[in-house]
């Protein structure tokens, strides 16, 4: 008996070791490139193609960050990115929770039709969308504006789904009690219902924040003036500008990537839960 238990312990020990070795190896594979970039950005004058490559920095100097910050007018690009991202997040949260609410709780003619049409758009792909979006934005005279950048993705069908799924989980008593007190439907939605779906709102905010922060192509298409570019778009520009100043490019890239990683680290719990909820919906 005792020998048996000992064997078992050794077995779990071995298994646990294997699991940790795999976990660490994978972590190196997924994080290594970022750590390497970080270390390149912290070592001015160090060649990216140094042999052997530097995964961990041997010295730390923020010179690259200071220089690239001065050279590239980062405050301007960060401002652009923040405006576009905030605008995108707000429109998505407001529009998707407005649209999804009646779909989940009201009874009215055409509800099923609206819902079916929305489902259909998720299955039908639209490769030409960007071309038509460009024409639409042009005819609305919004080329060159942040509104033109945000509008095509101001609300996504996916988000409407996610909100509808969440609203379905709220008992109808909430709405009934609001009606009893004589509140309008809008006030019920704003003051009684919305506070109950904060987690879902957090998920949509995060998803959209990442999407808008990282988007580079559509802003380049719509914005004619590179001074209006968000960070991701400006970075492609930075690469072309001084293709051999690796330290600067590395520092610039780190500056653009860090905010979103930090936000993710602080909000990941909501995010993971939301992802799990989304697939059930």
């Amino acid at each position: 008996m005792i020998a048996n238990r000992g064997m078992k312990q050794v077995k779990t020990g071995v298994r646990l070791t294997i699991v940790y070795v795999l976990l660490v190896a994978l972590a190196l594979f997924m994080m290594g490139p970022f750590l390497w970039l970080l270390s390149v950005s912290l070592m001015p004058g160090k060649n990216v193609f140094a042999n052997p490559p530097a995964i961990l920095p041997t010295f730390i100097d923020f010179d690259n960050y200071v220089k690239v910050w001065q050279f590239m007018n980062f405050p301007k690009y960060i401002y652009n990115t923040v405006v576009i991202t905030v605008l995108g997040v707000v429109t998505n949260v407001v529009l998707s929770s407005l649209t999804a609410y009646p779909l989940a709780t009201f009874r009215f003619k055409g509800r099923d039709l609206v819902f079916t049409l929305l489902v259909a758009t998720m299955i039908i792909p639209s490769s030409t969308a960007m071309i038509v979006h460009y024409l639409t934005i042009q005819s609305l005279h919004l080329t060159g504006s942040f509104l033109g950048v945000v509008l095509p993705s101001a609300v996504s069908v996916f988000n409407i789904f996610l909100m509808r799924q969440t609203f379905l989980g709220i008992p109808s008593d909430v709405r009934d009690s609001g009606k009893m007190d004589g509140a309008s439907e809008f006030r019920i939605w704003l003051q009684l219902i919305l506070p109950l779906v904060k987690p879902a709102i957090a998920v949509i905010s995060l998803l959209e924040m990442m999407a808008f922060w990282n988007n580079f192509l559509w802003p380049i298409v719509v914005l004619d003036d590179p001074q209006k570019y968000p960070l991701a778009a400006a970075l492609t520009f930075l690469n072309g500008q001084f293709s051999y100043n690796f330290g600067w490019i590395a520092a610039g890239t780190m500056i653009s990537v860090l905010p979103i990683i930090i936000v993710f680290l602080f909000t990941q719990r909501y995010y993971m839960e939301g992802m799990a909820g989304a697939i059930k919906g």
């Binding site: 994978l26 890239t253 653009s256 993710f264």
Partner: peptide, 13 residues
């Protein structure tokens, strides 16, 4: 979390 970091960073980076 570590495995998720590449997902949240931009394709440009």
């Amino acid at each position: 979390t570590a495995y998720y970091i590449p997902v949240v960073t931009s394709m440009v980076a």
